[in-house]
Design a protein around this nucleic acid. Structure first.
Lengths: 226, 226
DNA sequence: ACATAGGAATCGTTGAACAATTCGACAAGA
DNA sequence: TCTTGTCGAATTGTTCAACGATTCCTATGT
């Protein structure tokens, strides 16, 4: 039973600041979103607490945290599992994105937020130029995160952060990252231009089409018979 | 040190189903939102675990849950405190409401959702007729919760639930519940009519004014010099 | 093949213990 | 008097060991 769990021991070095439970949660969150733990996989309390060198109680506090973020599925007396998103979950995540990002593009952009967005677009383009599609994906995520800051709401920022973490759970099903990320590099640039030009309605409409497309790609790869 | 903690012991009867930690969280959540615990008050691990008859470890799991819901403020090595919302927090909560509820009213209403909304409006009117302003407040909250269901997104429903729980932390500062709740009974009815009439833009504009007003009332009572 | 009864493994929860940290009190010194 | 430093009590952070409860697997018997 060392489903890559032994490997975790290297992360013990990261333990040393703030609350242990939170640091454990940070580590597990990273591992989950990078696909190190696969959706559906059970996370054994004993194995992980031993691998990270923390007590079961502390680990359980971390599990609660991640469960609340919907990254883990906590089933009573059965343990915690890496969350498996249904097609309906994906649809719901995109519903939320349309609401939050849609509201964002309708606001008058601040120079600061625009700077972040620009940077993300440029990063994505650079990564695409060198065929690093993993980096493109990361930059695209940063793009949307930056987009949401237009709302100037810490809570919406946080909600978006969680939403994207959840979405990463399903990004890994895309066998070919290029197909999934490439089409959006150009679109991000276009959306940025619309924002800079203050063409709010066009930007909103463009974003809707954008999200529709992304959702379709994802749901198709995820659940081919849908 | 029995800041009403002794009273908690009656809630022990509610322990008996599902996970203990979650049930403890339920109890504390209720107590907080009903104002039994005041914002800023420290919740002693020892006192509460003893009062509820659960171990400290279990109680701490419950604390983590509520901390993540922003109802508790967890300060390292100092304990957990009932959250104190700043005026800026209130403003942010209303920003989120404008986004989520604004998106809701722009969607074509389903008969089911409309039914829930109607019910909430009627309840509020009945409660107002008998001068029960506490009940009016509850019905008004239900009204907005129902409004959000128009989005047909479980995650937005959940986000709204949390948001309203957080908002309840500050509702208690309103010394006179009538002043705060009465003006909105009529407005809820009006908003319902606009929705039924399919007058989307008017409904959206009306809602914005609605939320502006509510926020102003709240911030004023909360932070008189703002 | 199928139901069932163990039995092993794991979770849920507790209670005790100890280290780490905070905070107030109090004393020493400027 | 005010500041600073130190001590000690109180509380949190974390671990550990234990045990009942639940789930899952497997072997047994029909």
């Amino acid at each position: 039973m060392d489903n890559g769990v032994a490997d975790l021991e290297r992360d013990r070095s990261r333990l040393g600041r703030s609350s242990t439970a939170e640091r454990v949660a940070d580590i597990l969150r990273d591992r989950i979103s990078e696909g190190f733990f696969e959706p559906g996989q059970r996370l054994s309390e004993e194995a992980i607490s031993e691998a990270l060198g923390v007590s079961r109680n502390t680990l359980r506090e971390a599990f609660r945290l991640l469960g609340h973020e919907r990254l883990l599925d906590h089933r009573l007396n059965r343990g915690v599992f890496v969350r498996i998103l249904s097609a309906e979950d994906v649809a719901d995540l995109y519903r939320v994105r349309r609401v939050i990002e849609g509201a964002a593009v309708r606001r008058s952009p601040t120079p600061q937020a625009l700077g972040l967005i620009k940077e993300a677009v440029a990063d994505a383009e650079r990564a695409a130029a060198r065929d690093d599609w993993r980096a493109v994906g990361t930059a695209n995520i940063r793009f949307h995160q930056a987009l949401v800051t237009l709302n100037r709401s810490p809570r919406l920022d946080e909600a978006m952060r969680q939403l994207l973490a959840e979405l990463r759970l399903v990004f890994h099903v895309m066998k070919n990252p290029r197909d999934f990320h490439e089409p959006f590099v150009e679109r991000n640039r276009r959306l940025l231009e619309l924002l800079e030009g203050g063409r709010v309605d066009e930007a909103a409409a463009f974003l809707d089409g954008y999200l529709d497309h992304a959702e379709r790609l994802l749901v198709h790869a995820y659940d081919p018979d849908a």
